[in-house]
Amino acid sequence: MASGLVWSGRMPPSPDPSGLTQEILLRAYASVLRARALDDRRFVLNRAGKLAFIISPRGHEVAQVAAITALEPGRDRFCLYYRNFAAALACGFTPEELMLSAFARAADPSSGGRQTPGNFGSRRRGVVIGSSTVGPQIPKAAGIGLALKWKGEGALCYVSFGEGATSQGDFHEGVNFAALHRCPVIFFCENNHWAISVPQELQVAGPGVAERAAGYGIPGTRVAGDDFFAVHAAVAEAARRARAGEGPSLIEAQVYRLQSHSTDDDQRAYRDPVELANEAGKDPIPKMRQDLIARGWLTDEVDEQLRREVGEEVDRATEAAEAAPEPDASTLTRHVYADA
């Protein structure tokens, strides 16, 4: 970013991958590939008129999967936001489930076809049902964190959002509350510098989001969102603090939005073509691949095999979801209240 208002410093070198095994890393890498392959397929299906609306995680996948990999799905709670497609996969959603949601099918586990895809929810996985306004999950996460603190079982609540959400009062109210009561919450901001068409320099006063943590007396960390190991280490440290009763942390992952805001948006209409071309070269997936190869955890052969397997998964998921039944019209009035 060119503006002097936006943080433009250098990131520290990538940390040691302590505690990470090859198995964990390859599983994470497969989630990243899966998210991208599913997203590619969703765009094809959207352009073919089969899917109404998509919000792409393109450019955010590595940061999202790295964060979730540092946590414990099944034990922790996750308040995700609409761009968290890769995070949802890392939390345990299957490709078929996410395709069922994209096609608004009855078997969509998040909402049975009621919400737009991107509002993830699954009680058994600890993924708290999302919604489509910006930021309300942040004070909700503070309340979940308070409950988890009272229960004292060492679980934490992870809540994610974009930098646009940090302009909402709910961001400040939620972080303030969690900090006051030392709630076990991780506030994870995926800063892609654009809230639809509004750039960070018209959104965030001061150098960035991480600095805001200081006002609430909690740690604020900025990490390169394309560095799996940096994001993982930051979230792991925030998780350690949360589980030890030391309270919440704020992490700002710097990412790039390699797609328009949604399938109803075209960022070429309001963004500088040179900047867009420059960002297209900052895809985090080739970088993760290189990092894994450089550290000896991945070979070209394994990479090809993973991509082939993921491609087949996407084919199967698409076929199954497209063939799955739509919600029955008679279910429209169900689940308004407990007794209906």
Binding site: G143, A147, F177
Partner: peptide
């Protein structure tokens, strides 16, 4: 003071925190 909690002066978070507590079974 936990079960009868004085909150910050911020109604959106009063409702939001209450929702979080309810989702966790309180």
């Amino acid at each position: 003071p936990e079960r009868v909690l004085d909150t910050p002066l911020a109604e959106s978070s009063i409702a939001g925190v209450a929702q979080g507590l309810a989702l966790e079974g309180f």
